[in-house]
């Protein structure tokens, strides 16, 4: 499954980084602690978080994550978005909170 294939089902907003919509998804990782993600999220994971600053993209790019989903209607900071465009990491948004978003993505991926 690719990032673009979950947009409609999870009702996600695409903020930017759409060059990366063809990234293959290997799973998800839900965390707001950056060094937790750095240490434990693997290639191709979708990162679900409430952090909206540029360092999120630095980590997503260094770890080759598939995309970032911002929860609870949060929007990326301008420099996060600029970096996402440059690195080709999709930044997506949902009105749901972390629990629901994680659950929905999990269900979608285990099918």
């Amino acid at each position: 499954m690719q990032v673009k294939d979950i947009i409609a089902t999870l009702n996600l907003t695409i903020f930017g980084g759409s060059q990366g919509l063809t990234h293959e998804i290997t799973g998800g990782y839900t965390s707001d602690l950056l060094s937790d993600v750095m240490g434990h999220a693997e290639n191709g994971k979708i990162w679900i978080t409430l952090q909206t600053h540029k360092n999120v993209i630095a980590i997503a790019s260094l770890k080759d994550l598939a995309a970032v989903i911002l929860i609870k209607g949060l929007e990326p900071d301008a420099d996060m978005l600029a970096q996402a465009e440059e690195e080709g990491i999709p930044v997506l948004g949902t009105m749901d909170q972390a629990f629901e978003t994680t659950g929905k993505l999990f269900n979608l991926l285990i099918r």
Binding site: L33, L34, S35, D36, M38, G39, T49, Q51, H53, N55
Partner: peptide
């Protein structure tokens, strides 16, 4: 607040 400060960074380097 930015999500740093979990005290995991040096462990990540070690690992």
């Amino acid at each position: 607040e930015m999500g740093f400060g979990a005290g995991m960074g040096l462990q990540n380097i070690k690992n």
